[in-house]
Amino acid sequence: MTVASKERKLTIARAMAEAIAQQMRIDQRVFVMGEDIGPLGGVFGNTRGLFDEFGAERVRDTPISETAFMGAAVGAASDGMRPIVELMFVDFFGVCFDAIYNLMAKNTYFSGGEVKVPVVLMTSTGGGYSDAGQHSQCLHGTFAHLPGMKVVAPSNAYDAKGLMTAAIRDDNPVIFMFHKALQGMGWLGTERDAIVHVPEEAYQLPIGKAAVVREGADVTIVGITSGVHHGLKAARALAERGVSAEVVDLRSLVPLDRQTVIDSVRKTGRLIVVDEDYQSYGMTGEIISSVVEQGVMLKAPPQRVAYPDIPIPFSRPMEQWALPSADKIIAAFETMENH
């Protein structure tokens, strides 16, 4: 029985739903609202089963009114509830961002810490399946740039459950970004490595703590969500030619665990940062700056593998060309080798 339990593997979607259900069982203040999160179980599967267990009052389908329900999440949280609100695609932030960055993110500050806003905003990110430029973005940098919100983004189901549990229990707003290709929904393509063992009992992962997911000595590859999987694939390929790559999964963007990255690069002397978000003014530049300003000695200029500064194209050859990949990481390493 114990052995069977240890082998239980979940998708990120299942892990998120399980974390939410467990917190809803022990905390009446927790409720979920968003578009199609009720009987449908969420377009990306992450609220499946919740409606049947908790009913329409605590698992609320909303009208397509992100401005209103995002603002309502702020108001409910300020009044003692712990709403989990879904923004179906992160790309939809444009219709409701005031409630997010002017209210959710600032009300605690503007109240001198008197008003707590414990909202979990869960939202899907990422492309690769030809959904074009209004349904494929990551926007990590957009959310992480603005102070007052914690930002987490898991690369696997174990982290997803632990981070979701921590997010629900956190007294601050937490943006929970999940990458569509990692959800384990077959129709979006499925990254097998994101489906991992998940303990049944509730547990928390600390927000703001990165993980070294593969140890190595020659180069540090830093990524988040899909970037971690590209990094791991590149590391396996590099290993075949005798290069030992260390892979860091940031897991959180805010707070950012700079120290884990710096420690790794001090060891390896080489840094590649991978991000499916746009390259300029984003996470890749932030990571490189964080390392460089600490005076870490580098054997070669740091490299980044990020999305080019273009709207995401529809046509498959164009989109696939633009996306980060293991091959691009290997090419980046070769650039450093030849330096």
């Binding site: 605590r58 401005t67 209103a68 309502a72 409910a76 409630a99």
Partner: peptide
């Protein structure tokens, strides 16, 4: 108009509680 969503949310909170 951005006080309106929070007021709706506070009202929802009272209804739920």
């Amino acid at each position: 108009a951005q006080g309106m969503g929070p007021a709706v949310g506070a009202a929802l909170s009272r209804q739920l509680q």
